[in-house]
Design a protein around this nucleic acid. Structure first.
Lengths: 212, 212
DNA sequence: ACCGTAACACTACCCGTTAGGGTTTTGTAG
DNA sequence: CTACAAAACCCTAACGGGTAGTGTTACGGT
């Protein structure tokens, strides 16, 4: 219902804070910048800052909802008969590429250099894994136990974080995803349709396993 | 060089603090107890408390080094020709059982109820996964890429945390480990000896995959 | 024109954590 | 036994993230 100016002003304030924060963080380093510095630079009160961001670390991971939406969207929004894992692999590859692109390097160096930020990111990933598990569990075409859904989701999120840290992120995705696909196939065979449907869901990528 | 009494007194102080902390946490709840309360209950200064524990959360995860040592020990200390994954599976099962035993329930309920504790535990697990990855990478009988080692380590640590949260932890271990074994076998085939050695390393548990 | 509410500001405070600097206890060497 | 260095401990004070309480303004709906 709230149409227009209010929302725009709120979004503008939020963006102003995020921009000021990132500018200061990159200039002086994350630990050397206090919340009060950020608030002053953005010309807002500290309490206002905390009404837009739940914690100092959230200033850095401003777009974490993007990640969650994209990864669950890759499951729920894929083409009707598209197998699950290739869709996830494509999305993870895109996300990894996006994080290892040109301008993003200093930000990720900063994150790697601060334990608080790494810790925060990891707990974000846990939430994302839970959302992904829920999305997978909700797919009527996938007959998996809840535990298998959660396991798959963790593995996929692990793939993202491992690939991002790898020397060659693209190669890492190609190395890890066959492992996940094999794990997935086992889960499907345990509980899924015994004959053909499970293999079709996994798609062409299972040839590595069935070739003996 | 420090022999005897000093070490004992130090360990006693540490234990006294940990006991006092756990007592208060279980009585009043983790968030309702301050560091100053714990220090007073243990009759030590706040600075002393922080010379024994790096953070408030560490008071709860007092024996995290146990976990790290046991899990890496399961890799480095296994029988000469014992395959890797059964050894890991056995250790993980024991650790999960230990955490879901009788008296431990209130503690884990407390952990589940505090975001700070969950976050701390997750970053612990990351460290443990790194140690495990290093142990796996150091095993001369396992020809794996660094990325594969890290992936396997993450998956194993995930298995622990997923099983601990599952309704039936034992069944969860039995559900997740076949998935990890399949992933492992793919990693071995990509880089390992082409014919027999890889399968021998994995052991009898791969029958589920090769039975078609 | 008017009211409810969301955004914002200000003050003061709590809590985890650390620095700085001092005191006692312990192991060891003379 | 004494002397001495180091380790363990204590105290005070502070820093920085985060919050409660209390307003004030500006917007949107009616």
């Amino acid at each position: 219902m709230p149409t227009g100016r209010r929302e725009r002003k709120k979004a503008a304030t939020r963006q102003k804070i995020a921009d000021a924060a990132m500018r200061l963080f990159l200039e002086r380093g994350y630990d050397a910048v206090g919340i009060r510095d950020v608030a002053a630079e953005a010309d807002v009160a500290v309490t206002t800052l905390f009404s837009h961001f739940a914690a100092k670390e959230a200033l850095v991971f401003e777009q974490d909802q993007d990640f969650e939406q994209r990864i669950t969207g890759a499951v729920t929004g894929r083409a009707p008969d598209e197998p699950l894992l290739p869709a996830l692999r494509r999305e993870i590859r895109a996300l990894v590429r996006h994080c290892t692109a040109e301008g993003a390097a200093p930000v990720w160096r900063m994150i790697a250099g601060s334990p608080a930020l790494r810790e925060y990111e990891e707990s974000m990933r846990l939430r994302h894994a839970d959302s992904l598990a829920a999305a997978v569990a909700a797919d009527p075409g996938l007959p998996l136990t809840p535990t298998a859904c959660r396991t798959l989701a963790r593995f996929v999120v692990d793939a993202y974080s491992l690939a991002r840290e790898a020397a060659d992120p693209d190669a890492a995705v190609d190395e890890i995803f066959p492992m996940i696909e094999a794990a997935w196939e086992v889960a499907v065979r345990e509980r899924g349709e015994p004959s053909g449907a499970g293999a079709r869901t996994l798609g062409r990528s299972t040839t590595a396993l069935t070739k003996d």
